[in-house]
Design a protein around this nucleic acid. Structure first.
Lengths: 133, 133, 133, 133
DNA sequence: GTGGTCTAGACCACA
DNA sequence: GTGGTCTAGACCACT
């Protein structure tokens, strides 16, 4: 499990951790039922305070994304597949909605948006089964 | 000048004010050279602390988007047309980049993204010269 | 707002705080829209670390019971009245269910339970508008 | 001996085990002098760590509820009848006290509580000598 | 070993 | 003034 923390982004570290884990679970990079890195381990690797990781984990558990097994560790909860697909689409739609309303407000045509999107896809790799670490 | 403040979004109010003014200027809804509502007036209408508005205005002035004319008020600065166009595209690209990287991570194809984008355009109106206030 | 913390109960302090605030809100002792004691103030009075209070407040906010107004403080959220009544009954039913199943398992008759309940009501005061602090 | 373990309740597993055994003894479902399942057997059936069961047994032994016969196993200790009756009532009173204080705080009348109790008795069965496993 | 809680004290953003 | 975040380090309960 690799996470990137940006200490200068202004986004709280525990939120960065949450977002990235949530995404990795949704993307299947963290398999359901799989165990997460321990609080101390992850904290050590990211060079942050264990409590910060613990907070992120606790919130994700409350979200229902993670499951605690007392004295053993934290695991990715099992999610129904359709629910997962829906969540993924919702997340994307949310971002795209912002893009579209911005374009409309700025008088940028759907064609221009489409072109720009294609260019970004080429840049950020749309190839199937892209690099998984 | 109409602004929507969401007290529950977690985004600082002064940032919401800044973002919306910046967008309205870029979209031409706030014409260059036009005068802005006074701090007191806007604060009253949005029902927020005047210092919050003041802070937003001050930061936008530092950005060069607004100009202060002593004793008169704040006005939208004049922007070079190409600069404006570039800024608009940059803003959009920023959002779209997030959408594309999300799609890649979620294994959602460019075609699906395109389709979803079209649908959102139809929903939020892509017609040229849309509603100006 | 008066809270009783038992440092020896084993129940985490932040949970004791949450439970008592939740109850006071449900009981109407903390009026909707009313402002809560500040984190530092309450922490000082209870003689616990501010972070502990902050955690309790944050969790109650996530529950939807409290509302944050940035830079101002925390307030009791407005709850629909029927929802409140339902929540209260549910809370009570939950406890009573445990009592009844215990009685059944122990072969204690409904009459005995009723008698015991009456006795406890006399002891803990069922008088209308009992002592509110 | 059937026990239900809830891994998500937050209550320590060894406590859940203790509580349920204590109740079954009080209710007569586990007869005095009867032998308990072995640590290994129970742990296997409940799918928990044997040390967890061992801890529960050890604590119940310290309580005097169980008796260890070296080389043979653990047995339910003999309890004086009046002591047993008192313990049962105490356990019930403890739960009912919580119910009554909650009702008082929520301004729910004794009559309403009584009614609710009757309803729960009908639902969970007050018939004498109910299902024994 | 695991996670959970708490402290004391610091710094920050917001209004 | 408000709450939010983070640290360093301690202690605890559970398995």
């Amino acid at each position: 499990m690799l996470l990137q923390i940006d200490h200068h982004s202004g986004v709280p570290i525990y939120r960065q951790v949450m977002d990235q884990i949530r995404r990795q679970v949704m993307a299947g990079q963290l398999p359901e039922g799989g165990q997460l890195a321990s609080v101390r381990d992850l904290a050590g690797r990211l060079n942050v305070n264990p409590m910060t990781i613990s907070k992120a984990y606790a919130l994700l558990e409350m979200e229902g994304l993670l499951e605690r097994r007392r004295g053993i560790g934290l695991f990715v909860a099992t999610i129904r597949k359709d629910h997962k697909r829906r969540t993924k689409t919702q997340l994307l739609e949310q971002i795209l909605t912002k893009a579209v309303t911005t374009a409309v407000q700025f008088d940028i045509s759907p064609d221009e948006v489409h072109e720009l999107t294609e260019r970004l896809f080429r840049r950020y790799g749309s190839k199937v089964g892209s690099e998984r670490k």
